[in-house]
């Protein structure tokens, strides 16, 4: 399900260098997810955020805080980024499993991120 070797596993807050190829997404609780920019750009909101001219703070620091998205939702979203990246182009598809109890929250986050 995760297309890339870099697993979007939750990590303890720690210093991460801005590598250009990746972006750090931070949940409401402060958990950081490091994902490839390519994956993050599945979300149109993130795409605009990362490509907008003029240098917002996110672009410069390479990290985005989401004070309204909780860790487990953000994790699911990151998983979706990779799933989408992997399956959107090719013909083969696979189920993307969603637990019923988080459906609503997940959908709102999806609307927010335009993904």
């Amino acid at each position: 399900m995760m297309g890339k070797g870099e697993a979007p596993a939750p990590r303890e807050p720690e210093e991460e260098e801005d590598t250009g190829g990746v972006v750090k997404l931070i949940s409401a609780e402060g958990f950081e997810f490091v994902v490839d920019k390519k994956a993050a750009m599945v979300s149109n909101t993130l795409r605009n955020m990362l490509t907008s001219p003029g240098g917002f703070s996110e672009t410069r620091q390479g990290e985005v805080r989401f004070p309204e998205i909780s860790t487990h939702i953000l994790e699911k979203i990151c998983q979706y980024f990779y799933w989408s990246l992997h399956y959107s182009s090719g013909k083969e598809t696979a189920e993307f499993p969603i637990e019923p109890e988080i459906t609503l929250e997940l959908m709102m986050a999806a609307n927010y991120l335009d993904a």
């Binding site: 003029g54 240098g55 917002f56 703070s57 672009t59 805080r65 989401f66 927010y112």
Partner: peptide
């Protein structure tokens, strides 16, 4: 601020939200 070229202090996510 954007017109004044001071965008670097702004958080995209916050404004978007």
């Amino acid at each position: 601020e954007i017109y004044n070229h001071n965008a670097s202090g702004l958080s995209f996510e916050e404004l978007y939200r």
